[in-house]
Design a protein around this nucleic acid. Structure first.
Lengths: 159, 159
DNA sequence: CGGGAAATCACCCGAAAGTATGGGGCATTC
DNA sequence: GAATGCCCCATACTTTCGGGTGATTTCCCG
């Protein structure tokens, strides 16, 4: 084992870890940089501004990753409790339902994998199980059937 | 063929402006605060960390604002004359609209070809043109956008 | 008549999607 | 502690999609 892996950077599972590491590293870099060639007390404001801007951007990115997970789950698709029963009846797990919602929003498997911080293969597994439970062969068919049953709320244009 | 129509982008209002102003103000506050009761040079690292954290949070908040604003596109039924106008505005031909409806019902290109008594390649051409007119990359995305505009009626439990 | 739009079909090619199978980790339950 | 269910990941393989290009026919319009 541990030889050549066929996945250079495709996996998003490490996103959070990388984010944390990157953040810490950036801080260190900024710190050292400050004590080297930018000792000007005058540039103090600049630092704050730059850091603020940078981390605002990072925050927006991170937020985009998180919002879908947070936003889709507590959304009121059909009838709350009735929804749970319907899902339970079909044997659809929470994770699979998440995938279903993202599929309905027109996302690709790769994009879904990125948003849920899991591997593309995992998404494929989820979709595969989901399709069999919904008795569908294609994602469009799955969405259609899910909407027909009422599993999905109104359309949410993302992108 | 494949002509590109105009796709006006959505405006975000002046929330960005307010955000910028708020950010600048926050910086000023932080600055003055630093020179008053927090003059410890020792806390330098803390400052960066706190600011980073703070603005990451702000970024997440801002990102959430933007995405939700995008997500609140009206999903009206739309029918009759208004439908024709909407289709005409997008440059969607009758044949393409037929394909769109069948796609929304979860059919594959092969199945659509069978139902419309044409070649699979013809369906591919239609879908391709349709996607460019709807500004979609995937069929699920096309369906989602079409529903958002109101081009598609309620879901029909076929199959 | 010539131009343009629509509809039809074809071919290639790379990227996604879907299928099948197996394995590991983890928590709950019996 | 064995069994179960969910989740995660992987490999291998086949099929479908989607993009690009080009071509033909028909029909309408100026």
């Amino acid at each position: 084992m541990a030889k050549l892996r066929n996945h250079p950077l495709r996996q998003f599972g490490w996103s959070i870890l990388l984010y944390g590491l990157g953040m810490g590293l950036l801080l260190v870099v900024l710190q050292t940089a400050r004590y080297r060639f930018l000792i000007l007390d005058h540039a103090q404001e600049l630092y704050f501004g730059l850091i603020a801007l940078l981390f605002t951007g990072i925050g927006i990115w991170a937020g985009r990753q998180l919002t879908t997970r947070l936003a889709t789950t507590p959304a009121k698709p059909l009838s709350g409790q009735a929804l749970v029963q319907a899902l339970d009846k079909l044997g659809i797990t929470p994770r699979e339902y998440e995938v279903l919602q993202l599929i309905a929003q027109g996302l690709s498997n790769q994009e879904i994998a990125g948003r849920m911080f899991v591997s593309l293969n995992t998404i494929k597994t989820h979709t595969s199980n989901l399709f069999s439970k919904l008795d569908a062969q294609r994602r469009t068919q799955a969405v259609q059937k899910a909407q027909a049953i009422g599993l999905l709320s109104g359309t949410h244009p993302k992108v």
